[in-house]
């Protein structure tokens, strides 16, 4: 049986649009994603705008006294959260490429992300 056909499984998209550390939205968003992942839902995570900074390599937070969490994103795979999408324009505007990110993602156009949004049962912006 294709699990995606199961009526109890909902398509839930989390949208991360805040930079890490400056506010708690992305960190608490990640906490929510990790818990929801244990409930067998069809979860995707999209990084838009400053949200892409959460994935930047080389973040070292010890001097600001805030727990770093960039290395949690590669661990999402272990929770069966495999759909990580990054908005291409947001990446380009920030002078970043996929090589600057801590995890393998799918870089998509806004049109493609917009179409994915349309398919969702629930969208949660953090």
């Amino acid at each position: 049986m294709d699990l995606k056909q199961d009526m109890n499984i909902k398509k839930i998209m989390h949208v991360l649009r805040h930079a890490p550390h400056g506010t708690i939205y992305t960190y608490e968003g990640l906490e929510m994603i990790l818990i929801m992942a244990t409930y067998d839902q069809d979860i995707s995570v999209v990084f838009i705008g400053d949200g892409v900074y959460a994935l930047k390599k080389g973040q070292e937070t010890s001097e600001i006294g805030i727990k770093g969490f960039a290395r949690t994103f590669p661990a999402l795979d272990g929770y069966d959260v495999e759909k990580l999408y990054v908005d291409q324009l947001s990446l380009e505007e920030r002078g970043l490429t996929e090589d600057d990110l801590v995890v393998d993602v799918e870089v998509l156009s806004s049109e493609n992300i917009g179409s994915l949004m349309k398919e969702q049962d629930v969208i949660i912006q953090h």
Binding site: I48, G49, L89, S110, I113, G114, S115, M117
Partner: peptide, 8 residues
Amino acid sequence: ETCIRFAL
């Protein structure tokens, strides 16, 4: 501006 970019 961002919303408009993704709205169908």
